[in-house]
Each structure stands twice: as structure tokens, then as C-alpha cells.
Amino acid sequence: MILLVPEHAAGTLRGSARELVTAGRTLQAALGGEIHALLLGPGAAAAAAEIAKYGVQAHHSEDAGYEPFKAQVWTHAAAEAATMLGAKAVLVPASRSGLSYAPRVAVRLNAALLEDVIEVDSDGATVGGKRFTYLSRVTESSRTTALPVVISLKVNVLAPAEAAAAPGAVAAIDLPAAASGVEVLSQAKASTGGVSLDEASVVVTGGRGVGSPEGFTRLVEPLAATVNAAVGATRAVVDAGWRPYADQVGQTGKTVAPNVYIAVGLSGAVQHLSGMNRSKTIVAINKDKDAPIFKVADYGVVGDVNEVVPELVKLLKG
């Protein structure tokens, strides 16, 4: 069988959950067995009912110890459930959390790890995956030599699954949260206007060309708000202290692949491109027509961001 560990926010499934189902179904065709899902933390029961609509056998543990996310706690739960249910494959979204505990689950199950994959396949005895390497410039194919396998699945890549004719069963699972050596002292929400960078379907990123922190509030944030986008920043911008490090897109920051990526006043250094060059449609606004960002852009405006962006906001609102 195949075990999915989807994420949810207080009972609402995250978008990545339906992508997990898509990958789960691909593997099920070769590996056989049922698809199960493990939902953890407050709201898990509601999220379980939701995922069951996709023909998945859903298990939930509402233990408050699963919030906030702690890698060792989630590792314990996923590994226990996988062992209990006899999983040949464990799938988690490649969010920051997923990337953080999937390797631990693999170690604990003595399983192979396929990390941050964009595609999966199976011949019944092994599982293959494709993923990006070398700063997202190369697509690598690799296969496990055996099973089980733990897979973290890149978000916003696969088509979300459609509901199944026959829903799966929903049941509570007796899986209390394990102890952890990590004590959370404080938390701070990112400043991306409520839309998480990793999951946003539109991202607006500002670079040095935005001019100042004030330029972000005057240009980048209104544009992002207009198209319901998350706000990103380049390394130069976070280094200058205009935006927090959590907003950074690029090699040393977040890797995003939204439907639309809008680059405002940034030149497009290799390290930045590696964090966004897999976006579906790339739009760039920059005054330098030779900026490397235009080479990876589908659409671009050569012009002053101070003039072009307010105009865009006006037009997009209309």
C-alpha cells in the first residue's frame, strides 16, 4: 500500500494534498494495494474527511502535539503508520516541513529517499523519480534499488487529483505525538501577505531596482495584492535588510515554481534564476534591456518600474 501524509491548515487541506493523490495513484497502478492517508494535528479529522473523497483510506490523529511542526514528532508518526500499515511508499509534500522530515523517515524505515521530485513512476519492484539538480538547471532521473521508498513531492507541479467515485473510509488512529528535544520559543509569520511563497500560484519578486523598502510597499505589495500573489525578494534585497530572509527566492532562499512569476527590478543572477526558472510563465520588468532575467522571461517590459508597475496595477484592477 501507499501512505500519503498530506498537510492541512486547521482542517483545510493544502493544495499539495491533491497532488499527493495524483502521485499516489500513479504508484498504485504498479505497486497495487490501497492508498492511505495520515492526517496529523488539530483539524485532522476534518481534513481526513476531505481527503477520503479521493478514494483514500484516511487516518487521523488530532493530538495537539503535532502543532507546530516538529521534524522528530512527525517522523515518528509517519514511520509508525507506515510500519503498521505495511507501506511500500510514503509520500509527503516537499514543503519546508516535508523536506525536513522525509529524510528522517527514510532513515528510520531503512527506506530509499526520493527528494523533491516532479514525477514518479514504478515497475512494481522499484520506484523512479525525476528531480531538478545543479541549481535547477538539470533534470535528474533516479531509481530506488528496492522498496520501501519515502518520496517528497515538489509542490505545484502535478495536476491535482479529481475526486473518486467511491470515497475511502475515515478512522481515528491511535498515534499520540512523540516527545521531541525541540522546544519552540516563539514564532513569526512571514510578511508575504498571507500567501505562502511555496504554495502561491503567483509570485511577485522585487530586486534592487525597486529602490528602497518603501518601494516594496509602494510598488511590489500593491501589485501582489492585485493578483493575489506572494511577495518575494532577491538576495541583494534581503542582504540590504529591506525584506526578511524568509522572503528570499533563489539558491540560498526558496525555490518556487508558480504559474506566474513577476520579476520587478531584478537583473537575474544565476543564483536567483535557480530559485524560479521552473515557473510556468515568467514576466520581467526592468530598465536594462540586457538584464539576464529577460532571457528566461516569456513577457517583459523594458522600462522604469516606478512608471510601469503603477500602470499595471491600474490595468489589472480594471
Binding site: V138, E140, I282, A297, D298
Partner: peptide, 24 residues
């Protein structure tokens, strides 16, 4: 090793590169 590499390829998505310039 529990996984093995089976291939590496450079797949660059072709971009449209449509640029607009001039009046904002």
C-alpha cells in the same frame, strides 16, 4: 546506496522572450 542515478538531462524551457518597451 538505496537509489541509483539513471540519467541527467538539461531541459531548458523555451521562453517566448516577448519584450515591450517605450511608453510606460
Amino acid at each position: 546506496a538505496l537509489t541509483r542515478l539513471t540519467g541527467e538531462a538539461i531541459q531548458v524551457k523555451t521562453r517566448l522572450n516577448k519584450l515591450f518597451s517605450g511608453d510606460a
